[in-house]
Design a protein around this nucleic acid. Structure first.
Length: 538
RNA sequence: GCGGCUAUAGUUCAGUGGCAGAACGCCGGUCUGUGGCACCGGAUGUCGUGGGUUCGACCCCCACUAGCCGCCCCA
């Protein structure tokens, strides 16, 4: 039996790396708060249908990359009995009272007896007859005559007569099915592969649109996709995202919202100290524009595709939009010649995009219009964008997002246009780490203000009191162990803190503690009451 | 899901069909209330897991698992 390890594509985040994660998250919270965003926390798993309808049934995410399972079903015996009872009445039967409740025994007008016995098979959830019970009941009660049994076999997945046990097809046995949902709690659940669908679901569920206000929500949390792990790509990955959504009357369709989001992201990356990012911007048009474009693209590809790489030849048929993502150098000129989505936008989309660009120009946020930026999720409309960064290998997108004017309605909600983004926190961490290395920044763990060294076990209890005093004064304190030899205390102290505080018999008696600065080597005696101040407490 | 590379001490990595190695780190000592430096000594371990070939396998072969990189796809 080997060691249990973190499962594939998941990993532990340990100090000091978690410092960086916290830094990123607090920066996000700080910046987003200035734009009046509030935090939303949605469940980590949702009804599978949410993603199927929101993200798109045909996307790879939904078709093969989700962690989906059927929630444990609880068999509803009462529902089965009620249904059975209805059927019994239809046959003019009556139950015999002294038989155990899960059994029903019936006498028909012609004198034959009908017995039924349900048990729940614990492993499969399948209902079966118990022949033995039927026979022993007959013997016990001295029942003779023709035996006929009306039974019900309920198969959880709707298997039909093929699965009825052979012995039940014997001429004397009458098998029938009872209709009804006997597993009312059964539900297909999925670990969220992204968070936008969950946020929009919450928006609809809590009728946030009825406030008449724009909802500005951000989230920070893990997402799950069952993909092959790669640099910056994990099965449990972390996203920081935000959504602006609301009724059109609140201005949710305004291009100013798009520009504001993009400006906020640029500010966020700048404040984090990420250098060298690129904003790529495009418009994929309205829900009507995109199909027209895909059609034109398909037609153009009929002639061009055979001259492209094998991957593109396949994409041309399967998913024409993905041809635009091709990275093979030789293909680029030919792909540039293909129809551009910009030429298929309706007047509104065109004007919308122009205003987004104008607002970005006005506040000096640099961007590149990338006619080939066509994002994968079904719900995107109009503005789409990506912030990319070199040095991330094949996974060069730091974050991405776009407008989704129809998503709420796709999920059965009111008209609620919105725009949002998701930042790949794992990739931000990679990028910041790479920058730190490049800058030669020390990633040394933070040193404590003081290391308290109790000298002897007799001083242990009182040394905790001392540590408590200092910590309550706001100091970062490490506490040693009274059994350590002095040399060891110094070695430990030197690794963990800037100063060491000796607390031995002598100090306890005199009320004067010994403090030594590891940097300067200077050693002084201080009254215990002044120690916190001396160590730099405010 | 597919392909290439990889898996040896806490870490980074050498290694040879015949006793399991280095550096750093760790522990102890020189030094019993004074660290860093130096010197001396010590422990590092299922050589990823399971099979096979062989007198003998860390090494060769097969399978599996995981990691890295890329493909698909995507943030």
């Amino acid at each position: 039996m080997g060691q249990i390890k973190a499962v594939r594509g998941t990993r532990d985040l340990l100090p000091p790396e978690t410092e960086l994660w916290n830094h990123i998250e607090t920066t996000a919270r700080r910046v987003f708060a200035r734009y009046a965003f509030g935090e939303i926390r949605t469940p980590i798993f949702e009804d599978t249908q949410l993603f199927a309808r929101g993200v798109g049934e045909e996307t790879d995410i939904v078709s093969k990359e989700m962690y989906t399972w059927e929630d444990r079903a609880r068999f509803d015996r009462a529902a089965l009995r009620n249904n059975w009872w209805k059927q019994v009445q239809a046959y003019s039967l009556r139950p015999i009272p002294d038989f155990p409740p899960c059994h029903a025994v019936f006498e028909q007008p012609d004198g034959t007896i009908q017995l039924v016995n349900f048990v729940e098979n614990a492993t499969s959830g399948e209902m079966k007859f118990i022949w033995d019970a039927v026979h022993s009941y007959r013997e016990q009660h001295g029942i003779s005559g023709q035996l006929s049994v009306i039974g019900t076999i309920v198969f959880p997945r709707g298997n039909q007569s093929d699965s009825v046990p052979l012995e039940c097809r014997d001429g004397s046995i009458d098998c029938r099915e009872i209709d009804g949902n006997f597993y009312p709690s059964r539900q297909s659940l999925t670990l969220r592969p992204e968070n936008t669908a969950g946020v929009v679901r919450a928006y609809i569920e809590h009728k946030l649109g009825d406030t008449g206000l724009l909802q500005k929500l951000y989230y920070i949390g893990p997402q799950f996709r069952r993909e092959r792990p790669q640099k910056g790509r994990y099965r449990q990955f972390y996203q920081i995202g935000a959504e602006v959504i609301g009724p059109p009357s609140a201005g949710s369709e305004s291009p100013l919202r798009d520009a504001e989001i993009l400006e906020m992201l640029a500010t966020f990356l700048d404040e984090l100290g990420i250098t060298g990012w690129t904003l790529e911007l495009n418009s994929v048009g309205s829900a009507a524009d995109r199909p027209r474009y895909v059609q034109a693209l398909r037609e153009a590809l009929v002639d061009v595709a055979p001259t492209l790489c094998v991957d593109c030849q396949r994409r041309a048929v399967m998913n024409p939009l993905r041809v635009l993502d091709c990275k093979v150098p030789e293909d680029q000129p030919k792909i540039d010649e293909l129809p551009k989505i910009a030429d298929f936008l309706d007047e509104d989309s065109r004007a919308h995009f122009a205003q987004v660009c104008a607002a970005l120009d006005a506040c000096g946020v640099a961007y590149t219009v990338s006619p080939r930026l066509v994002r994968g999720l079904d719900y995107y409309t109009r503005t789409t964008f990506e912030f990319t960064h070199g040095g991330l290998g094949a996974q060069n997108a730091l974050l991405g997002g776009g407008r989704y004017d129809g998503l709420s309605e796709m999920l059965g909600g009111p008209k609620a246009p919105g725009i949002g983004f998701a930042i790949g926190a794992d990739r931000l961490v990679l990028t910041l780490q790479a920058q730190q290395v490049a800058q030669g920044a020390s990633s040394a763990a933070l040193l404590a203000d003081a290391y308290i060294a109790p000298l002897g076990e007799a001083q242990q209890a009182e040394s905790l009191v001392l540590a408590r005093e200092l910590r309550r004064a706001g100091l970062h304190v490490e506490l040693g162990d009274g059994t350590f030899r002095l040399k060891k205390s110094f070695e430990m102290g030197n690794k963990l803190a800037r100063k060491i505080v000796l607390f031995g018999e002598e100090e306890a008696a005199s009320g004067m503690v010994t403090v030594k600065d590891f940097q300067t080597g200077e050693q002084t005696k201080v009254p215990r009451g002044e120690l916190a101040k001396m160590l730099g407490a405010q």
